[in-house]
């Protein structure tokens, strides 16, 4: 298999923002256990800004590293800016991913969207 970058290994071994937020404003979950990866993301939102984020992931090294990286990327950002992040942005921030692992970065980006969607549904006026 192609090697992981140093950044991927570093995020995998020391993932940021792991855990749950009990009173989260939005929760997103993507993937399924059959394919071998599931990501769940919790966000706290204040005045359209993501003030806190946590995640739990079942999956390979790339799945954990992309989850960790994407939480770092959206923390402190507006919902609009967070939604603009693409899977390519996540992969680039990690120094690239082996081609077969690009779907993991897709998952991370979809998980952000799912959490924001959940927040919007719950907070529609």
């Amino acid at each position: 298999m192609e090697e992981y970058s140093k950044e991927v290994i570093e995020h995998f071994l020391n993932p940021r923002n792991v855990g749950e937020i009990k009173d989260a404003d939005g929760v997103g979950e993507v993937g399924n256990p059959v394919c071998g990866d599931i990501m769940r993301m919790y966000i706290k939102v204040k005045k359209d800004i993501i003030t806190d984020v946590k995640f739990l992931t079942f999956g390979c090294g790339a799945a954990v590293a992309t989850s960790s990286m994407v939480t770092e990327m959206i923390k402190g950002k507006s919902l609009e800016k967070a939604e603009e992040i693409t899977n390519i942005n996540v992969a680039e921030a990690l120094g690239g991913l082996p081609p077969i692992k690009m779907h993991c970065s897709n998952l991370a980006q979809q998980c952000v969207k799912a959490a924001i969607l959940d927040y919007r549904k719950k907070h529609e006026k």
């Binding site: 992981y4 995998f12 071994l13 990866d37 999956g59 390979c60 090294g61 799945a63 954990v64």
Partner: peptide, 12 residues
């Protein structure tokens, strides 16, 4: 948990 993750941690 997933196998590749276990392998990477063991490799470490």
């Amino acid at each position: 948990i997933e196998g590749e993750s276990i392998l990477l941690m063991l490799d470490h």
